[in-house]
Design a protein around this nucleic acid. Structure first.
Lengths: 171, 171
DNA sequence: TTGACAGGTTCCAAATTGGAACCCTATAAT
DNA sequence: ATTATAGGGTTCCAATTTGGAACCTGTCAA
C-alpha cells in the first residue's frame, strides 16, 4: 500500500496521520502555536527548504488547519494562522510534549513548562475519564465497534477486517 | 536542515517526532496496541513493504518502544511488544483519535468507541489541568522556559533562539 | 539606480520508498 | 525422501520525495 491510500482505512488515526503524519507538518503546526505566521519565519525556524514549506503550508490551508490571512494588500502578503480545526490539535501536540519530556529528555528536564492562566499554577495536563475522572491508561480501555463502522456494515459496505478486529488495547 | 537533524532542537515535540514522526511508525504503534505482534501480521494490517516494515520495527526496538520477545526458539521467531515507553504513547494516539473523530469523520460517526473498565462507561477522555481540573485549551496555557533550556543557558551552551522564544500559544 | 525583502518556482542530484524476486530454516504434508 | 509452506528477512530497481541552489517578480527604501 502506498501512503496516499492509508486514509481509506476506517480509522481516525490513519485519517489523521494522512493529514499531519508526514515529516514536517506537525512541526509547522507547532510553530503556528508559537505564533510563527509568515513564510520566512517558518523557514527560519524549521530550516526546511522553501519548496517543501510552500507545499506543506498550502496543504494545511487546503485541509483547513491553517487560514491564509492578507496582511499587506499591495504586495499580496499573507499570514498563516491556525483555524479552530488547527487549534484543536493542541492536545495532540501537548501529549507529544509530555511523552518527550519523560522519555527523550537529556537530563536537564523539560525544555518548556506551562502555566495555566485559569488557576495560575504550573500545569502537568492529565488525561482522564470524563465519567469517573480517573486517569486514562491503555490497560483500562476496551475499544468497541462504533457507529462509524457499524453503519457501514449495515449498508453492506466493505470495511477492512482490520478495522473491525478491535482488540483490547494492551500488551 | 535535513530531517535527521531536527532532534538537535531543544524541543520535546521535535525530539518526539524525530522518533515517530515519519509516515509509518505511529501506525505500527497503533497496531501494537491492537495486539498485532508478528512481522507478517503487521504487514497484512498495514500493507507496508517488508523492507520498510523491517526497518521501522528495528528502529522501534532500538529506541525502546518495542521489545523483541522470543516465541519460537528453534526457528528464532520473535514477537514485537510495546514497552512501558511505548505504552505511554497511548495518550498521543488517543488524542489523534479524538481529533480525527471530530474533524475527519465521514458522517457515520466514530469508527471505534471506548469503554473504561474502571467505571464501565463509554468514555470520551478529556485533557485537564492537574491543579484545577478544568479542561486544557491552547488559549489558557502560557509556555515558560523550563529547566531543560535554563540549565543549558547557565552552562553557556548554545540553545537556538527559536526554542527560547516561547510565546503564548494562541492564534 | 541599485539593492534588499517576501514569497515563490524551476531544476537537479541525493535519499527514500514500494514492489517484486530471491534466500534461509524448520516444520508439515505426501 | 521430496516437496510445500510459513516466518522473517535481504537485494535490487524504478518511481517518488527531498534538500539545496539558482532564478523570478513586485514592491519599497536609500
Amino acid at each position: 500500500m502506498r501512503w496516499e491510500e492509508i486514509d481509506t482505512q476506517v480509522c481516525s488515526i490513519a485519517r489523521g496521520l494522512a493529514i499531519f503524519g508526514d515529516k514536517w507538518t506537525l512541526l509547522i503546526v507547532r510553530d503556528a502555536f508559537r505564533r510563527v505566521r509568515r513564510f520566512s519565519d517558518f523557514q527560519k525556524s524549521l530550516g526546511i527548504s522553501k519548496h517543501r514549506l510552500s507545499d506543506r503550508l498550502n496543504r494545511l490551508v487546503e485541509v483547513g488547519i491553517l487560514n491564509k490571512v492578507l496582511y499587506d494588500e499591495k504586495r499580496a502578503r499573507y499570514e498563516y494562522r491556525l483555524t479552530q480545526k488547527g487549534i484543536e490539535l493542541y492536545p495532540v501536540l501537548m501529549t507529544v510534549v509530555q511523552w518527550g519530556d519523560k522519555w527523550v529528555c537529556d537530563g536537564d528536564g523539560s525544555p518548556v513548562v506551562f502555566e495555566h492562566k485559569l488557576c495560575g499554577h504550573e500545569v502537568q495536563p492529565k488525561y482522564v475519564c470524563d465519567q469517573c475522572e480517573k486517569d486514562i491508561t491503555a490497560r483500562d480501555i476496551v475499544p468497541k465497534i462504533g457507529p462509524g463502522i457499524e453503519r457501514k456494515l449495515l449498508r453492506g459496505e466493505a470495511v477492512s477486517r482490520d478495522s473491525i478486529d478491535v482488540k483490547s488495547i494492551t500488551n
